[in-house]
Design a binder for these strands. Structure first.
Lengths: 138, 138
DNA sequence: TACATTACTTTGAAATTCAAACAAAGTAGG
DNA sequence: CCTACTTTGTTTGAATTTCAAAGTAATGTA
């Protein structure tokens, strides 16, 4: 396996570039990176408990509480009581939050189109298969 | 192109998981995420000017100055005058910084091995080609 | 030489984060 | 039931991080 190193390097480089892209895109709107990240998670996975969201964002629940406070003030999300567990609170996107999610997702879509433009259909399919398999192994 | 959406989602999911992994790995050592990120950049790209490092980390140069101050205190990097431009200052890894970079890189290596274990050699080669092409398009 | 630009640092205020303490709700064993 | 323990989310206060703006020194340009 001589190309494992190359593969590793290519993945890291790809991650770095995605990260930079995310930063630059967020700067243009008037929203925090953390807020966009939360909106993205809620848009993809749907309403979530505080704890779940905190874990997915790798912060403590205390930090999450104040972040959600800020996001509520910015009208990005709202809190909703959990159906069966009265300790838990669900966080869900507001209409404005959903709109921001969709805008952001459209940018992601454009980026994906751009960076896969150099690949033919067969390669794109192969890449998709690889990614699906890799996401499973995580 | 019906699978562009799938591709987009797979990429986002992959990025999310890498991000979580990075956080969890860093927590175990006694180093900040920002510090590890800087060490990684310096390890990959070699010594860099403050401005370059700041841009790659998506922060202002002011922030970079205090971050590098902290990293110097932690013996991760050192400052070195630039050869031709006396305004510029090069940041480079210390021995300890290099060691941390290598440890971290080894973990990345293990992760790459793990998540590509479900792929055969042909797929791995295809994936590598795709990534190289995509990194070019960025 | 004079003027503008670039690179970095400093500073002070604002934002973010965490750990710890707390309250309320669920769970398990006797 | 009851008691003890766990889980969930909030609050608090301190520490850290961040940025924008102002300052300094070196470089480029006209």
């Amino acid at each position: 396996m001589p190309h494992l190193d190359q593969l590793n390097h290519a993945i890291i480089e790809f991650y770095e570039k995605l990260s930079s892209w995310e930063h630059s895109v967020v700067k243009e709107i008037g929203v925090t990176l953390a807020h966009v990240h939360a909106v993205e998670l809620l848009g993809i996975h749907g309403a979530m408990r505080m704890k779940e969201l905190a874990m997915k964002m790798s912060v403590t629940t205390g930090t999450m509480t104040v972040q959600v406070d800020n996001m509520v003030k910015a009208d990005l999300v709202r809190r909703r009581p959990h159906d069966t567990d009265r300790r838990s609170i669900l966080v869900e996107l507001t209409e404005k939050g959903q709109q921001i999610y969709q805008n952001h997702d459209a940018l992601h879509h454009d980026l994906t189109q751009q960076i896969t433009s150099g690949l033919d259909t067969t390669q794109q399919q192969a890449l998709l298969n690889c990614l699906i398999q890799m996401n499973r192994e995580f």
